[in-house]
Design a protein around this nucleic acid. Structure first.
Lengths: 187, 187
DNA sequence: CCTACCGATCGGTAGG
DNA sequence: CCTACCGATCGGTAGG
């Protein structure tokens, strides 16, 4: 029975993802995490062995949550224009769906790690890269002339909506992103 | 002669802006800043009185740099479509112009402060708000139907280009943003 | 602008 | 998973 240990680990990561979505991966300190979960620092630490391993596990747990909220439900739509459209709509909707406590996890963490070479930055980079590739792939299937350009624009608009929502407190931001994306999607 | 003290303060803030553009306002520690400038922590600290005052002064110094690089040079262009176009081009170009050591200061700092209520967040928010208002104002003068929508899209695309450049290492990102903005600008 | 401190917190370890 | 530590660094202060 490794179940109890696995449950504890899952509970730690669940909280870690929300802390990091708010205060970033630096704000995710072992002391704070242990305090909130009412366990000792060293007890928690033993699950990961280093701060970096905790950060990596947190990033992958965030990817799982993003996958469940945006990617998986869209698999019902047909590949190509339908899937692309579904991805985009869910991508915008996810900002207001409280998937993460601090809004888009990738916006919160992306700017933080981009200047820090290492495995954590690489993991974030590759996950974002894979998501943009998936968007571009279905844009290509839909016959869009420059699929990578479209993927870039959608990503930028959704990130912009998150910033508008969180930093400016502008509730219209997702609607603005939706309008711009709608205008850009293939008919 | 308060000149020597003012010079020191200017040198501190000059370095502080670049550190914050890389490691964020939390990465901007008094110890690190003092170390790089080869002065004592307390000597440096005396110029500001608190970490928060240092952060505020750093944000305003960053605004000055952004103004000098993007806003001021565009004043030669005529109000309306011409100015709007000039703003947008310079806004994209500024990403690759090494105005800040860590790329766009506002992208680096925006996601960091958006969950931390207080004077620092308010300052960042108001500066961004003012910039978007200025973009929208000239879009309005140019006869654009929804000036705020256009300002939002331009801001999102430039932020996206910065992320593409810094996080993904995609050198095409500014060109992609430029293309999308060009398509969106009034003829 | 300095030396010399302060209490708190950081990531991490020893040893159980 | 715990108690009890470690050296380093944090923001900040006293006193000059």
């Amino acid at each position: 029975m490794t179940t109890k240990s696995a449950d504890t680990r899952a509970a730690i990561l669940d909280r870690a993802v929300d802390i990091a979505s708010t205060g970033g991966l630096e704000g995710l300190t072992i002391g704070r995490l242990a305090g909130e979960l009412q366990m000792s620092k060293s007890g928690l630490f033993a699950h990961f062995g280093s701060k970096q391993e905790l950060q990596l596990a947190t990033v992958h747990e965030a990817a799982r949550r993003f996958f469940d909220a945006v990617v998986a439900p869209a698999q019902a739509a047909p590949a190509g224009a339908g899937r692309l459209r579904d991805y985009c709509l869910r991508y915008v909707d996810y900002l207001g769906a409280d998937v993460f406590e601090g809004g888009c996890f990738w916006s919160a963490v992306g700017a933080e790690v981009d200047d820090r070479p290492g495995p954590v930055r690489d993991a974030v980079r590759e996950l974002l890269r894979a998501w943009l590739d998936e968007l571009a792939r279905h844009a290509g299937l839909a016959g869009v002339p420059d699929p990578e350009e479209l993927a870039f624009e959608v990503y930028a608009l959704v990130s912009g909506a998150n910033a508008g929502l969180r930093l400016l407190g502008d509730d219209h931001a997702p609607e603005r992103a939706r309008a711009a994306i709608e205008r850009r999607l293939p008919a």
